[in-house]
Amino acid sequence: MDFIGYAIPFAGAAIAIFLAGFGSSVGISTAGQAADGVLTEDPDKFPSLLILVVLPGTQGIYGLLGGFLIMFKLGLLGGTPVSLNLVQSWQIFFAALPVGFASWISGIHQGKVCAAGVAMAARRPETLMKGVIYGAMVETYAIFGLITTILLLWSIKI
């Protein structure tokens, strides 16, 4: 029962990266479409709207980070691969879930907030930063997910 392979931790890492990436891409697509709408009529707004469009992209990065941390934990990135028992495998798997799910759902919703922010900034350019702040509030929960994942991985004894 010493070494059962990395299938379960890999599944965890894959879920974290996949879910977060999915959330981010949906979020960016929503915000991006809204920005496209504005830019159709007013191309000069591109630089200021860019920040709102890329904001939902951070979730993907968190998921990627979570995935890398798992690989690091397994010793796949430099160092020697560790051996895991079944319990440890599942621990790593579940530790990967917070960042995955938090990023997935917050990414989609952040996209909506940012799209609304784009619409607001189109009308009143001076409110751009307010839109960014509201978007960043959604970001908080993706960060919480990432922190939880990091702490959980940290606490797993191998």
């Binding site: 929503t30 915000a31 479409q33 809204a34 920005a35 496209d36 709408g37 504005v38 830019l39 159709t40 009529e41 007013d42 707004k45 996209g111 909506k112 799209a115 784009v118 619409a119 607001m120 189109a122 009308r123």
Partner: peptide
């Protein structure tokens, strides 16, 4: 319907005019 994101963005820009 988030499918309206583009339309609403465009309308908001038009509304400024």
């Amino acid at each position: 319907d988030v499918g309206y994101a583009y339309a609403v963005g465009r309308i908001r820009a038009l509304e400024t005019r």
